[in-house]
């Protein structure tokens, strides 16, 4: 990590946490368990407007802001996808928009979960990252979020 922003600090902590696992089964179990810790989205947001179309799993993303910080609630019908979302949001949530827009997500490679981020993986995760950064960019420009 180049900067010592909050985002990179959180990412470093997550990488350290994942170093505990030397077996992929345990690592994936941890991803799945992290998904279960996600705050549920407000039911009003479980609509097509807030759905991110992956090929196979569905993801809903609810943008929120508080005191100039941006955060997201999200859900997915697939547990591994949901766990990956939880990982992303743990790093990105409650940041100033500019930081999210320019965030370095290379920590995902260090978690060795990069395979899920290849553009051909049909899990909607790439689309979700793009959407998170679009929302943050809109906030940075003071445009309405919804």
């Amino acid at each position: 990590m180049i900067t010592s922003s909050l985002i990179s600090e959180r990412a470093a902590a997550l990488v350290e946490e994942f170093e505990l696992f030397d077996d992929w089964v345990d690592k994936y179990q941890h991803v799945i368990d992290l998904g279960k810790t996600l705050d549920p989205i407000d039911e009003a947001f479980r609509t097509d407007t807030f759905k991110i179309q992956g090929c196979q799993s569905q993801v809903w993303l609810q943008p929120c802001s508080e005191n100039g910080l941006v955060f997201f609630k999200a859900d997915s019908d697939a547990q591994i996808t949901k766990g990956l979302i939880a990982i992303l949001l743990r790093v990105l949530n409650y940041s100033v928009p500019a930081e999210i827009v320019r965030s370095d997500l290379s920590f995902l490679e260090q978690l060795q979960l990069k395979e899920h981020l290849s553009p051909t993986r049909k899990n909607g995760l790439n689309a979700m990252i793009r959407q998170i950064q679009l929302y943050a960019a809109a906030m940075e420009a003071n445009a309405p979020l919804i």
Partner: peptide, 21 residues
């Protein structure tokens, strides 16, 4: 109630290629 995508992802880690969706 497991999503086929999750099952397929785990099977792949075991070296097994199936189709999901």
């Amino acid at each position: 109630s497991a999503h086929p995508y999750d099952v397929g992802t785990i099977l792949d880690k075991f070296g097994i290629g199936v189709r999901t969706g």
